[in-house]
Design a protein around this nucleic acid. Structure first.
Lengths: 335, 335
DNA sequence: ATTTCTAATGTAAGCCCTTTCATAAATAAT
DNA sequence: ATTATTTATGAAAGGGCTTACATTAGAAAT
């Protein structure tokens, strides 16, 4: 753009060697005589040479770039996840290409095409996805070309690998805790009804109630209009109109925080009037007031493992196709 | 990796034309006869061809990729910023390569090298930076090669463009508001002491106090150990030990939220005992309790404008070198 | 039908590297 | 010193694309 770029020929000329030798100086320095290597290094420094990764990748067939597709980076859950992914990837010499989809089909499709064009080595789909043929087709399409890693989602297929927290167990942990605390009217705010995470949680919410012979009250179960604070706030409003409850379980922390806000705005005390618990254990749980009881997904671990799997696959090492992470209950003030 | 890639030669063969014609079908379709175009499109579909962006970029000298360097994506301020950047970039056909530096010099250097190698078309340094020769050298180095856009930071130099909120004015707005409300003992939690944003804010905090003939109490001014909630919490603890105050101004929302948490934990009521205000107006301000009075930076606007400037420069259009955004006071419950 | 001009297509060079294979230089062995 | 062996370097092809220039086909003009 601004400066005419110096390339490998310029270095070769300056150092008085062939371009092959310059290339070796970068990739197999041990194959060169010390003095030639030094000549080349001096030339590189003098002309401030930066190798062109496009050309390198074109021949090496590897870009050391990973695509990351998420719903929305501006959501603490995904923020933590992407941060973890980026950190680990960077440690291993990979760079991250980012795409926000807002869970929109067309956006996802667009990013997949772009990433494939740009020859990423693999794509990580980070965070809950819809369960549908349509969405799965995306994953399978990508997996025909490059490895795919999913976090918080299951799809068994060639070239697709999954890491996820055991949400059935996590839900069980949390529900048992609430019930032990004496709650029998436990409302539930569900996330997107067709996401894997939501389905599992709802299933286990119902299961634990039954196990404890607690009647299931349909009015206390609601699908949130959106899986964020706003959605949680609104869902809670509706629940309050519908019936009475002493505890509230939201499928993610953001919705739980929204619900708390709704409750305090209406004069309820959390937890003495109504206990509230979330899920995911995002950082924010520690900083809202009251601090939020939640179940940890170990978001960072999930992210790092996703990268580890990806790089293992890329380096043709063994990699688990389906890895579960143990969830843990984190009791704070809200419940 | 998994599938042997089909290239432009395969398409040319399948369609019975030359590769130049295939290339034209993608880039200048209007130059082809309708039927040839159709033949080629059919071939592309049949073989499910994806052009190789590496090769394209190698010749076109443009990757349609922007590097974004930030401190930490897992921080709502940067999260919102990056989201805005990504959105606008995506609308304009650019993809984002992401790098978290945690404000570390070496990390920043590393990402700059990687981005330059990968031939990004430009780099956006999003969010406050340290003011120092050392850090500025980074920016200038990059700007020698490709355009640089800074948000919330000023550096006048060739090929460097800045967008920022007028923080002097924002601080004035806020301080005047607090003083009007009758506060005369206003504590101040500063961010990183050597960042542009911090310097301006502190300067204006002092200025407004003087203007209103309010004595400056050194004990009520503190540099936060870190510019997040934890830092704000800790800074507030120290302030409470040091002296009395009826209002607290933190240089960013996260620190303000940490401070509120510290105050409520110690039994103070916010705002009746101590009023608290932050800066930046991140989404979260609406969802903490009490909701946080702040000054909006219009983070999203900042991000979009950063991209607009970048693309204008890349397309050789006129672009402002220094753009200020008007801040606005957003009064909520905390002050 | 022949020539002229335009539009469509092809040929080949070039973008910047890596890597195989061949060659030259240095070292070891005789 | 001479040959065999190892090591360091160079020449050239190839990776997948774009584009300037050359060529051919088709339309318009005579």
């Amino acid at each position: 753009m601004t400066k005419e770029n110096v390339n490998i020929y310029d270095i070769a000329k300056e150092a008085g060697v062939s371009i092959a030798t310059v290339s070796r100086a970068m990739n197999n320095p041990e194959k060169l005589r010390k003095e030639t290597k030094e000549k080349i290094e001096k030339a590189m420094k003098k002309l401030s040479y930066t190798p062109n990764a496009l050309a390198q990748s074109l021949v090496s067939k590897s870009t050391r770039t990973l695509g990351v597709i998420i719903a929305n980076i501006n959501n603490p859950f995904y923020g933590e996840m992407v941060r973890a992914i980026e950190d680990r990837a960077s440690d291993k010499g990979y760079t991250i290409l980012l795409g926000n989809t807002d869970n929109k089909f067309e956006e996802e499709e667009k990013y997949i095409d772009i990433f494939l064009k740009k020859q990423v080595d693999g794509i990580i789909f980070a965070g809950g996805r819809r369960i549908s043929e349509k969405y799965n087709r995306h994953l399978i399409k990508v997996a025909e070309n490059i490895p795919v890693v999913l976090t918080n989602h299951i799809l068994q297929n060639k070239n697709i690998y999954c890491v996820l927290s055991d949400e059935a167990k996590g839900t069980e942990l949390l529900m048992n805790y609430l019930i032990e605390k004496g709650h029998r009217e436990i409302a539930y705010i569900n996330g997107y009804a067709d996401s894997y995470a939501s389905i599992i949680k709802k299933e286990n919410y119902l299961k634990i109630l039954s196990k404890n012979s607690i009647p299931i009250v349909d009015e206390l179960i609601i699908d949130s209009p959106s899986d964020d604070m706003r959605g949680g706030y609104r869902a809670c409003e509706i629940l309050l109109e519908r019936g009475k409850f002493t505890a509230l379980f939201a499928a993610n922390d953001l919705m739980a925080i929204g619900a708390i806000r709704c409750l305090t705005a209406r004069g309820y005390n959390v937890p003495s009037d109504i206990a509230v618990a979330g899920y995911d254990d995002i950082d924010l749980c520690n900083y809202v007031s009251p601090s939020l009881t939640s179940v940890t997904q170990n978001i960072s671990e999930l992210g790092s493992i996703a990268v580890d799997i990806m790089t293992d696959v890329l380096e043709c090492k063994e990699a688990g196709r389906l890895i579960f992470i143990e969830p843990k209950l984190v009791v704070r003030q809200s419940a």
